[in-house]
């Protein structure tokens, strides 16, 4: 796995109180029960704070998997 993917897994795991190792890259809001709407807000806000960027609302609502977030960061972070 790439470093980026690893970073995202750690961040999502911190929010969801899960072991990062248990999160595959297809881990998502639909596959993980703890990933509810409040957790999702916290994940997006954490991404924004950690990478110092602003995620559009459209993107924020749909970025609901580890791989999706990693890809988004690859495209938007230098």
């Amino acid at each position: 796995m790439s470093d980026r993917l690893d970073e995202v897994r750690r961040l999502v795991a911190d929010v969801l109180n899960l072991d990062p190792e248990s999160l595959g890259q297809d881990a998502s809001a639909t596959s993980i029960e703890a990933w509810d709407s409040i957790a999702h807000l916290n994940i997006i806000m954490s991404i924004e704070a950690a990478y110092d960027l602003e995620v559009d609302l459209e993107d924020a609502m749909t970025l609901s998997s580890v791989s999706g977030i990693a890809t988004f960061l690859d495209e938007n972070v230098a």
Binding site: V15, N17, N42, S46
Partner: peptide, 12 residues
């Protein structure tokens, strides 16, 4: 650290 993930972790 000043991000929600860190606050959640430290709070736990």
């Amino acid at each position: 650290k000043p991000l929600p993930a860190s606050y959640l972790k430290v709070a736990r």
